[in-house]
Write a protein that binds this DNA or RNA. Sequence first.
DNA 1: TTATAAAATGCAAACGATTGCGCAACATTG
DNA 2: CAATGTTGCGCAATCGTTTGCATTTTATAA
Lengths: 343, 343
Amino acid sequence: MAIKTKVTIHDIAEKLNITASTVSRALNDNPRISEVTKKAVVKAAKDLNYQPNNIAAALRNGKSHIIGVIVPTADRSFFASVVRGIEEIANNLNYKVIICQSYDNYEKEVQTVDALLSARVDGIIASLGKNTENFDHFKKVQEKGVPLILFDRTSDAIEVSQIAIDDYLGAYKVVEHLIQQGCRRIAHFTSPKKVSIFRERLRGYAEALRDYGIPYDEELVVSSNLQLEDGRKSMEQLLQLKEMPDAVFSSSDYGAMGAMQVLKENNISIPQQVALAGFSNEPFTSFTDPPLTTIDQLSITMGTVTAELFFDQLKSEDRMKQPQKIVLKPQLIIRKSTLRKEE
Amino acid sequence: MAIKTKVTIHDIAEKLNITASTVSRALNDNPRISEVTKKAVVKAAKDLNYQPNNIAAALRNGKSHIIGVIVPTADRSFFASVVRGIEEIANNLNYKVIICQSYDNYEKEVQTVDALLSARVDGIIASLGKNTENFDHFKKVQEKGVPLILFDRTSDAIEVSQIAIDDYLGAYKVVEHLIQQGCRRIAHFTSPKKVSIFRERLRGYAEALRDYGIPYDEELVVSSNLQLEDGRKSMEQLLQLKEMPDAVFSSSDYGAMGAMQVLKENNISIPQQVALAGFSNEPFTSFTDPPLTTIDQLSITMGTVTAELFFDQLKSEDRMKQPQKIVLKPQLIIRKSTLRKEE
DNA sequence: TTATAAAATGCAAACGATTGCGCAACATTG
DNA sequence: CAATGTTGCGCAATCGTTTGCATTTTATAA
């Protein structure tokens, strides 16, 4: 019943008494083929229910039209959005996207890169695992002439185009905003991790204070893993101080959320007594009470910009041109958790 | 400088004075090859920096070891989690995952299916677009002998294995819980959409009421798109009633969130005066004040179960066996928004 | 030592599309 | 009318692996 035989361009050729070459050219709209032939081929292809075999084409011309994307995990809001953006652009350009998760596991990242290379992807877009310090696997990618680009979690230890957001600026904006709202004792939740993003945010915090003539007070800077529970503990710790802070800027929204819970439990009003800000614009931040001021990382934009830069390099003739570094300006999202003054 | 020449099994063969066949078999651990040869081949492969070409292999044996996943959009929490689960299982089995977004656009869905077929994926896992009513594109997949499986947004209009959650049961559980908390006038936010999930939830709502001897009151059932704004409007509408409801069960967490805002603005206490429950366990629901009771859809589980069933069918000899339908039992997540009684 | 089985490897044809080159057939130009 | 150009298409090699069917080598038995 079912016509199991795979139909190829040869079948089309046979039916029309021409050769496979002509069919191939006709299907690819090659100008060397007459219009009549093209129409006949297209019609025959439809009649025979022809399905092109990309694999054969890929083998022949060395282009798979597939790109690999490596993220630590696909279900974190930020990465999911980036993936969305990348897929959107890629799809418009007729590329397909293979998605891979490293789970912040270095070995897995290495294996994944290797697997993508074997799959002959036309390029790789990756966000580094937290523990990645050796870049031989990515250098191998470049040596093989496969376009590579890093986003968000990038590194200067490898010469490669990259897209990141300006963490320093984001933090600076938050703190500046808090100061403008009248806060003077601004605490900060940071992380001891070696990841540069937290260092950058800390730097932004410190510089903003300095620029506005507010002394940097070590006891206001608390280090933790920045999860909800950490935020709670950090906040409780701050409440022990002789002089309570009048604002808390957490390097993560989760940490801020923990602080919010503790503040509410202690009947400390937000933002009047303590203003509160996070970082990342996690989806939940607009639904807290009060809604949380935070920094948006433009995740979809990062996806599209990354993809655009990537395909730019893919098309560009001299593949080996200087790696580009793009830094996105994050956006301050002001919500009630920091709005002390009615405008 | 860079050794540009792609190294193939022929290069390995040449170096060892054997043939490509032997190299191929050695690399695939074929028992017909002696151990010494295997070791030599593996070593030579490493020395030459050999990278297998999956495309050539795929062409030869008709298996790409890639599966296609189609979701409406990759950045919705639920789908992102499912994708995560699928990728995890697939990766363990040495399969790669191509991700595609339909954006609930029927034409795009059709094109995507076609593209995946041309890419010669070994199977397709999809969640239907909202407007998909014609299934010819999916039937074509089956006719070509490509394994297909649907999850979450499924349909009975096509004979295919599918995984979904029991929306009826989820709704029933919520309403039952509300009743046990002492609620008697329970309102429901539903959607006019043809999508079956909302009908099923409405059914669960109605049946629970009936089972507990509570009359079904039409004025308590409000229909909308279930977004935040819709939730607000619906709630305001309910507040106009002579007799206010003592509970609201929204078919979406966003709708519930809108209701929560309106209730708070009107100084109506949650859950004492009005208990509130949503559906989906969106990430934000645990961060609202009060935290929102909702139904968890086991997204990661759905991903892994879907992937497992899929690979089950992929391996199974008689591919054409009866399509299986798996229904996941959703889980009631009780939070403060409905907890009237201290336990 | 010869016949026979078992083990290890080689040969060559796929898989399906692409493309450089060549060759007709026909049109154009001087 | 010869020379040249243009158009439309065919030939055959190629991409890198895999695999059925030899063929060779080695081990075992008679």
